[in-house]
Amino acid sequence: MPLNRQDARALDDPQPRHQLRTHPLEFRPMSAPAAAARPAALQFKGRMITVTVLRLLDASPEVLSRELDACLSDGSGLLAGLPTVLDLEALGEAAGGLDLAALATLLRERGVTLIGLRDSGEAIRARASAAGLAVLNVDGGRAAPRREAEAAAPMAAEPVRSLLVTQPVRSGQQVYARGGDLILTAPVSAGAEVMADGNIHVYAPLRGRAMAGVLGDTGARIFCQRLDCELVAVAGHYRLSEQISDAEREGPVQIRLEGESLLIEPM
């Protein structure tokens, strides 16, 4: 789930619309020689991270701690250290009686890294900040279809901006096509990340990570000549390399979301 936008400087330049922009392959603030005048102790970097959303269905601390222990006791350590966001929406009125600080302690004691709360109203915001928790505007899968309907009208009225990249995207580089499609005519290396608010087209092997519809557009698709990726995602729904069968990797493919599942289809 995208929490943070990419900060590619080149992409922030105001560009006339209707224009295919080409990308100079220069992505992040850096500690290179020319940057010597910038502060050396600080670096701001945009990153995509995956967070786990923990939905609470019961407000009683006893029930929660018992069920948490049951979940975490399988010994897999699967949840340990995972950045987690609390979703209190399902509690409704009962959320008002919840002791957020105590709940945070409860989770942390069990190794769950709680980073904040999903935004669900003014009352929660005030109490979250009192408990030292961040309030995050997280677009879950459920919210996305509504957004898509809203987005459809302006998309039709205004031509979509595309970003064209003709150089290989190397390991460690990120490219983000803000507000439109990303078109790549050179390979995406393992360890590289390509992202777009719209679709991603790769006319070359895709070996890195590709995330389409990062703002939640569930209609976004990924097209590639050869799928050899580390991860593909559409609107936050992802599949890892090991979840992609050899049969699905053959030849050019498109990747799209149908309901909650990410389909990989030959073209």
Partner: peptide, 24 residues
């Protein structure tokens, strides 16, 4: 190979040549 790929990316963006807009 992966490290070399990373270096090739750096050569494309963090040399004087690249910073002067002349590309990799």
């Amino acid at each position: 190979v992966r490290d070399s790929d990373r270096i090739l990316g750096i050569l494309a963006s963090k040399t004087r040549h690249a910073e002067q807009g002349k590309g990799s």
